[in-house]
Nucleic acid binder design. Structure first.
Ligand SMILES: [Zn+2]
Ligand SMILES: [Zn+2]
Ligand SMILES: [Zn+2]
Ligand SMILES: [Zn+2]
Lengths: 313, 313
DNA sequence: CCCGAGAACATGTTCTGTT
DNA sequence: CAACAGAACATGTTCTCGG
């Protein structure tokens, strides 16, 4: 085995689960489960009122009507201490966080208006800086002021929002409220473990979400060659609408070839794939030799099940 | 321990590593390592010639000048058997793959032009269908015609493209060309394992890429509460430009507060974080009780190192 | 070298949460 | 309740690759 340095959980940005049923509309949808997920839990997603969702509504504003100091577009407020539009705001943050350094090939004299702002990122970024955007306003660590109490609140909230499991009927589990309760006794002020636990909780949600969604890895078979090379499916977890009940009802949009199979979820493959998705993110793997990797891989799965048989290594 | 169903690797879409040094420009950048990565390996990224990169160049075309059958925008070709623009093409594919079902709140009579096409996804999708887009043209499994020889070719290519390791100086390993060689003897036509190995290869690349990039988890600490809830950093692996050598040289864009720390990479935390990233994607985790999760978590890290000491569970 | 499918990449919008 | 930072979500563009 090559040398493996095992990391310790480090902390990260913020997720935020969208689980409040306060959507703009209240159409009388009475499907089977009817959970309280905002996004697409029901089979059908009612389009929001126009004036949102990328539509081209002018959207009258009563505000001072600021202009973006960078591109001149309508500003959505003061971002990083500079009046700016959403685009420039996000562009600036991303560039800084990724520490990107663009180089203009026109000597930094590119025009920047609402439509040409994407023409040269070097000039756009420079103009962001010149316009007064302050790098220090970017919260690289959003938790600088995240107190333990706040963290606990979040966990508490998560516990009471996971009401959409509706599958493994073990919600009769009485210990949930306690065993899940991130006991302060155990973790105390030691944020480390406390945070770790919450990570696990979050993973839970991500996983559950994806597992109960329309995501059906069976249809994405492309050889293991590519399987692990693609981005983790967890990244798109929220992209796939949840299905209240499997097998899903036929999709009137879908034609024959897909209908017959897409109505069912291949749980075996699904769970299989999800498991692999997990592996995708490990680190020390890259330092292993091929033989070690294979061994480790087989070991990982063989440890729990009969994958070893398949791998026969 | 709760019941755990261990999945088996399933296959996925396609990644494609952009590792050809055929960028439009050939500026004489002579940094230390100078790998052959297309994207941002060098510290600075020269902006491409205008007329690309989201700029608003008309980009003269000599083609028949098709129009998108859905939104009327300029079509980029015939997609899914229907002349369409890139937007509608991608929109259609995504909707189908995710099996989304939009519902119009205007009875399906929304106008659809180039600018209003995002106003109602239900109508947009319906128009895609009406325009003739064929669901069957979507390659849910891109590998339907992926032969073993092709797969081998890919692997071969990968092997010869990993020239940017430049860190763990074990390239003196003579067995690489053979032990990495995905011996057909072992896997034969059994795509399964064959693919699996390639997944591992891919993970390698993802990991290496992220590890050598500007990605510095130290700055993203936000408590474990949120750590695992965020999308896997692997998903954005290519977003962070590679750094040829750590510590990185100061970024003239970055101001003081960030400069002092961002110039150095905290390898310990980095590796730690990457390891956790890996965990993020596992599946059966969601079915475990809290205590089990904690135990498993500690076990995972304790298995390799002294994390158990920290967790003290 | 063209085509077209899709991954990767880049952007922009909306939602959530904290102050 | 407004502001605003950032995550999540949605969309559009460019690159890769096999036919
Ligand atoms: Zn702007
Ligand atoms: Zn420029
Ligand atoms: Zn179109
Ligand atoms: Zn409509």
């Amino acid at each position: 085995m090559a040398n493996i340095t095992i990391p310790m959980p480090v902390l990260f940005p913020e997720p935020s689960i969208s689980i409040n049923g306060s959507e703009s509309d209240s159409d009388g949808r009475s499907e089977s489960v009817t959970p309280k997920l905002t996004l697409p839990f029901t089979e059908n997603e009612i389009e929001p009122q126009p004036s949102s969702l990328y539509s081209n509504q002018p959207a009258q504003l009563k505000k001072p009507l600021l202009k973006c100091s960078v591109c001149g577009d309508r500003a959505t407020g003061v971002h990083y201490q500079t009046p700016s539009c959403n685009g420039c705001k996000t562009f600036f943050r991303r560039a800084v966080i990724a520490q990107r350094k663009f180089v203009c090939r026109n000597g930094g004299k590119c025009a920047l208006d609402k439509h040409g702002r994407c023409g040269c990122r070097a000039c756009r970024f420079q103009k962001c800086v010149d316009a007064g955007m302050n790098v220090n306003a970017i919260q690289h660590s959003p938790s600088v002021n995240l107190t333990l109490s706040i963290a606990r609140k979040r966990v508490f909230r998560h516990q009471h929002q996971k009401g959409y499991e509706s599958e493994s009927a073990d919600e009769s589990q009485p210990s949930t409220s306690e065993s899940n309760g991130i006991s302060p006794m155990i973790f105390g002020e030691h944020d480390e473990l406390f945070k770790t636990i919450n990570i696990v909780l979050r993973i839970d949600e991500k996983h559950t979400r994806l597992r109960l969604s329309t995501w059906n890895p069976y249809f994405e078979q492309d050889g293991l060659v590519n399987f692990l090379s693609s981005d983790s499916a967890y990244g798109n977890a929220t992209r796939y609408p949840l299905v209240s009940q499997w097998p899903a009802r036929p999709n009137h949009y879908v034609e024959k070839r897909l209908m017959k199979a897409e109505e069912i979820k291949f749980w075996y493959f699904c769970d299989l794939a999800l498991s692999v998705e997990y592996l995708k993110t490990f680190e020390f793997y890259s330092q292993l030799h091929m033989a070690d990797k294979v061994s480790l891989f087989c070991l990982d799965f063989g440890k729990t099940n009969d994958f070893k048989t398949i791998a026969c290594l």
